[in-house]
Amino acid sequence: MAWDDGGIFDLSAESDARDTWVWRSVVIGTGALLIVALEPSGAGMAAAAIGTAVVVPNVVDPEVWTSASGEWSELFNVFDAAVADLTEADAAMFAQWKDSAAESFHGFVNGTLLQVLARLREACNLMDDACTQMAIVVISTLVAYFSATVGAIVAALASNAGGPFSPAAKWAVFGVWAPVILAVIAAMVAAVATLWTTNKTLGDAFDALKNKIGEKDGRIDAASVRLPEPVKAVISRYDEWEKKS
């Protein structure tokens, strides 16, 4: 997986792309030192293959995820306030308006709008948590990579100092390093899969909101609430409304 190839967060922002390539450069540099330390056994080329195919494409600046977490948290606050305001407004309206039209509108607000908004609120909370977890996973992956790689470099150099060149010793170092790297990358991929599931939950919630409110030019059109036709018919008979003074 390459983060800038159509993933959840494309690295289109210049600062995000720059910071990510800084991290990738450090990873590439560390990997190059490992390759030199492992050669001429051939293990260095194997390490280069893993680094090129698996490690580097999955390196991303952790700030991408921490920033995303903050944005989802702000959206959660927006939807949370919307739920609270709509609940309060509906209660105030229903206290002054008691008839079949009021019952229909009240039912629509409580049975549809509030449920959809609450679903969006919880989806944003899930995305906030998922992005926070991804930031932790990315940081943990970088720490694990650098720790394992530096350790492998030290071990490979120590094998040089310990006596005549031994390809077996270099391959033994590679044999310890490679499973650790593959395991931490696999953990990152699993975390991304979880994030995609959460992202789908959010998409489903937005689709539900669009179905109830409507959309215009690909955006939710909150200015024109799409009430069910039976509810519209009842509310439109304003001459039959009964208001309490």
Rank of each mutant, 00 (worst) to 15 (best):
E63R: 09
V64W: 04
V64H: 06
T66F: 04
T66H: 05
T66Y: 03
T66P: 03
S67K: 09
S67W: 01
S69C: 06
G70Q: 04
G70L: 00
G70K: 07
E71D: 12
W72N: 08
S73R: 13
E74S: 11
E74Q: 07
N77K: 15
N77L: 15
F79R: 07
F79A: 10
D80C: 04
A81T: 04
A81R: 01
A82C: 07
A82I: 02
V83G: 10
V83S: 06
A84K: 09
A84F: 01
D85A: 11
D85E: 08
D85L: 06
L86A: 09
L86H: 05
T87H: 03
T87V: 01
T87G: 05
T87Q: 04
E88R: 13
A89C: 05
A89D: 09
A89Q: 10
A89P: 02
D90M: 11
D90G: 11
A91N: 08
A91G: 14
A92G: 05
A92S: 06
A92T: 06
M93I: 11
F94V: 10
F94G: 14
F94Y: 06
Q96M: 12
W97Q: 07
W97A: 12
K98N: 12
K98F: 05
K98Y: 00
D99K: 06
A101V: 00
A101Q: 08
A101K: 01
A101M: 05
A102Y: 00
A102K: 03
A102E: 09
A102G: 15
E103Q: 11
S104A: 15
S104I: 07
F108Q: 09
V109K: 02
T112F: 06
T112K: 06
T112H: 03
L113Q: 05
L113I: 09
L113Y: 01
L114D: 01
L114G: 04
Q115T: 09
Q115V: 13
V116W: 00
L117A: 13
A118N: 14
A118D: 11
A118S: 15
R119Y: 05
L120R: 03
R121T: 06
E122L: 12
E122N: 14
A123W: 04
C124K: 11
N125G: 15
N125W: 07
N125Y: 01
N125P: 01
L126I: 02
L126H: 10
M127N: 11
D128I: 02
D128R: 13
D129H: 13
D129Y: 12
D129V: 13
D129L: 15
D129A: 15
D129F: 13
D129E: 13
D129M: 15
C131L: 10
T132M: 14
Q133A: 15
Q133G: 15
M134L: 15
M134S: 13
M134A: 15
M134D: 13
A135T: 08
A135E: 12
A135S: 09
A135C: 07
I136N: 14
I136P: 02
V137P: 00
S140M: 12
S140F: 04
S140G: 12
L142D: 12
L142C: 12
